[in-house]
Simulated scan of single mutants.
Amino acid sequence: MTTGAAAPESYYERTGEHTYKPTAHAGGAWNTDEQHFSPLAGLVVHAIDGHLARRAEPLALARISYDILGRIALDECEITVETLRPGRTIELLEATVTIGGRPVVRARAWLLATLDSSAVADSPHEPLPAPGELTPWAMDDEWDGGYVSSIEVRRTPPSRRGRTVAWVSSPLSLVAGEPSSALASYVALVDTANGVAVQQDPTAWMFPNLDLTIHLHRQPHGPWTGLDTTVTFGPSGQGLTSSVLHDIDGPVGHADQILTVRPLP
């Protein structure tokens, strides 16, 4: 019987105004002593939400693009946010995640004013089958790490390698003792896409993503993040994971991840 305190039911604990300590639930799939990028992406949006809380007129996040600069250790991180292009209806922010004095992630977010365009709202993408209509999938049978073990995944049986539809949800909070926006909680699950539609056996090939770019035409809400995902491997070491993003009401945007494809020894 295991003794000692149970792991906190969150991905992060706040340790300062701009600093956060990851829990074991944030552990990565490729290396368990690193952070999985998915909850960290949500944490960046959480930090952006805090930066925007001082703003009188709210803006909606329309695009966020993350560049992963190096190894993301399972250690305390600092997130700073600055405004690069202020504006009343359009604004550009940059967030930097630093671990041990070294920047490991930079993210840029475009924010737009919220207007009523419901009269012309339209998308060619059909809604996904509801989460309850899909089969539960034990993702941790194929992948390691605290993050993968923390989530619930429902997906269609892959019609071919690199192609599937999946819903992802998590019972954990993003930051212990703090409410997170629906957007931050939703984004915290998007990076899972690269693991739900596996193109090749991850014990034979590595294909980690170097970035994540999310475009939104509608603000999503939870508790489920829908991923209509396609993974393509090219012939010279590059790959691409592309997803049409959904919530339970229908499509909300797109996400893309560039991959470095390498055989394992």
Rank of each mutant, 00 (worst) to 15 (best):
R88V: 12
R71N: 07
P86V: 00
G70W: 08
P39W: 05
T89S: 15
A56N: 05
L43H: 05
E76Y: 04
E82D: 14
P58V: 02
P39D: 12
V45C: 06
R85T: 15
I79G: 01
G87L: 08
S38L: 09
E57I: 11
I48G: 05
T80L: 10
E34D: 15
Y66I: 02
E34M: 10
E76A: 12
A60Y: 02
L74D: 01
S65W: 05
G42D: 04
A73I: 05
R85M: 14
D33W: 12
L40Q: 11
S65E: 13
D33K: 12
V45Y: 01
V81D: 00
A62M: 11
S38V: 07
R63V: 09
P39K: 12
H36P: 04
I64V: 11
H36L: 09
A62P: 05
E76P: 02
I90G: 12
R85K: 15
A41D: 12
A60H: 11
T83K: 04
G87V: 04
L74M: 05
I72Y: 03
G42L: 08
L69P: 03
A73L: 11
Y66R: 03
Q35C: 14
V81T: 15
F37L: 15
G50R: 10
A47R: 08
H51V: 00
E78N: 11
L43D: 06
G42S: 10
R63W: 04
R88N: 13
I72A: 08
Y66F: 15
E57Q: 13
E34L: 10
D67N: 10
L52W: 01
I64A: 02
F37P: 05
V45M: 08
R63T: 15
I68Y: 09
L40Y: 07
L74N: 03
P39M: 09
E91M: 14
G87I: 07
D33P: 00
